[in-house]
Design a protein around this nucleic acid. Sequence first.
DNA 1: GTACAAAATGTGTGCGCACACACTATTTCA
DNA 2: TGAAATAGTGTGTGCGCACACATTTTGTAC
Lengths: 362, 362
Amino acid sequence: MQPKNIRIKDIATLAGVSEGTVDRVLHNRGKVSEIAAKKVRRVLDEINYKPNLIARTLGTNRNYRIATLMPDHKQDPYWKQSFDGIKAGETQLAQFGIHLTVEHSLFDPHKKESFQEAALKVFHSRPDAVLVAPLFYYASIPFFKELSEAQIPFITINTRIQEANALSFIGQDLFKSGQLAAELISMGQNSNVAFAVLHIDEDLTNSVHLKEKERGFREYFEHPKMKSHATVHTYVLGTPQSSTFRDQLTVILKTPDLGGVFVSTSKAYLVAAAFKNENAAIRIVGYDLIKQNLDCLQNGQIDFLINQNPMRQAKLGIQTLANNLLFQKSTPPLHLFPLEIITPQNVSTYLSHAGNLSGIIV
Amino acid sequence: MQPKNIRIKDIATLAGVSEGTVDRVLHNRGKVSEIAAKKVRRVLDEINYKPNLIARTLGTNRNYRIATLMPDHKQDPYWKQSFDGIKAGETQLAQFGIHLTVEHSLFDPHKKESFQEAALKVFHSRPDAVLVAPLFYYASIPFFKELSEAQIPFITINTRIQEANALSFIGQDLFKSGQLAAELISMGQNSNVAFAVLHIDEDLTNSVHLKEKERGFREYFEHPKMKSHATVHTYVLGTPQSSTFRDQLTVILKTPDLGGVFVSTSKAYLVAAAFKNENAAIRIVGYDLIKQNLDCLQNGQIDFLINQNPMRQAKLGIQTLANNLLFQKSTPPLHLFPLEIITPQNVSTYLSHAGNLSGIIV
DNA sequence: GTACAAAATGTGTGCGCACACACTATTTCA
DNA sequence: TGAAATAGTGTGTGCGCACACATTTTGTAC
């Protein structure tokens, strides 16, 4: 039998003090004489004490409240997966007897005021921690300031706000994402080909996001070692319902030597539908595994989707907060998710895998 | 305050029996009258009792021993990541006070006898559970039979043995993997192009694996809706050290209209090196993120790698066994990992992500 | 009816930790 | 000098569960 794990009790014996004193030293609760503290610290330096996290959660019988502030998935289906991820994290932790009360707040991703309003409510509810997708830069800054001042830890997801003093950001590198899109769209194409970048977004909440993706996309072709100097055209399209939308697409389709379309939002399916009968040779690269996109991917109308894995992102956010609150575990300030490439051939392997991750410890 | 989680104590009160009786019913320990059992079951049916898994591990003070039986990574670097994954799972569980003793057994992936020998030792050590990569079909069958008879649960990884009565198989769909390779290699190519499938393996331990991948690869081009009827040539190459190896590669390179090479093992870098100065237009698709492949990917010699994520697979294996032993959690018998596409542009996002997953609960 | 086994049930303890509280030694102040 | 405040200790309890053991009830034979 190997050396059993060291308990507080063991440390107490080794240091010649009581368990209570060790506890006070470990948690800086004060009320310890310098002499006793030194004795304990000496032991702690020599042995590698790892508290039993399981026992810890049993001991502290606190009920932490985590507030989430996410876009309403009724407005944008993309956020459904995030919501599910939060739920998954919640139930999983509950399984382990970790009683987290997660309070969901939703806001309209198209309305800044909706975010501000919800943020205010979240703050006034005084949660122990917050998970937030701060789509609106300027509206979120004062919110983060308040949280920081109130010492409420928070994790940002999806949208990175550098100035925010977040515990951690969970998301993707958008610039690289654009580069990847460029690589995929140009793979095997002629060097004199033209590409179109389409920003389809009813408003400009995502403008920073989209710009960053486009920057990466263009940068790829400007790289010195690239021989193909493809031409890149950018289009900003309005609401898909309008007649101008169709007209614009028709114009884009007429671009000479058009080899592919990069849709910077999750709306690639709209383009796919319009191009359906026109020209199969035009490659389409888009984002996110929402229903409509999946359909287009499977029938070959879309060639590549880049997956953000919002479900796992959100779940990780909840887990990270729990780790922080309950176990005082530190977190890397930046957690960038891999840029997952989804094609007609591997899409099924991604979909089936997601469900399997439900009830496992880590 | 919301309805607090239901404890055994609560069930006992509701059913009008003692905690001991509830415990006996829950665990089928017998010694319960039909009347009492019925009372308890009635309560259990109505409420949704979820045992506090954390408290459970504290209560049962058993020390489980898990044996692993994996190829030696000194013989094949691919298995290094699996080994690290096992270690990662181990330390993570230790953090939670779950005292698993993991006993590592390694075998020479090229020698069947080595596997048999190691398997025998593993069995005689009478572990509580086993995680094994059964590279050798016929050698593993009796091993699995023994384990089953001794009621020792085991999980197979990497190689699926249908006949084995494994708790779960963790790996990938190799047929789909071949299809994916075909998709990637043919993307944007002419329809009259030729492709070469290269099986580079010093011996034939992986033969089933490789055949399955090739089957998928070929099937892709035979699909009725595919217009391009590319020709596919298969080559089985011997040891890379031999002179015939180089000669064979030179011959392959001369194939008319050769559009790409699909290397079914992790040895794509060997091909990349040989083709380096010859012809940049030939696309190379291979497997696994080992050092040499990564180098080739980054300098553009390899176009695509399909990642098996052996580290996460192994870690999941350990976690799943722990879940099974400690929490009696059931497991899906098949856990197929997504087929991850790695390109020069997204490889860095995969590498950085791996490290971040160290200390999180799930 | 008693005697005694067997079945059924209830109670108690420990897992490792956090935290409240009781207790003792040391100061401080009247 | 004594009382009271304070700093420094140790002890005890509970978290929810598993499991050993004590206790009670039931069944069986005479």
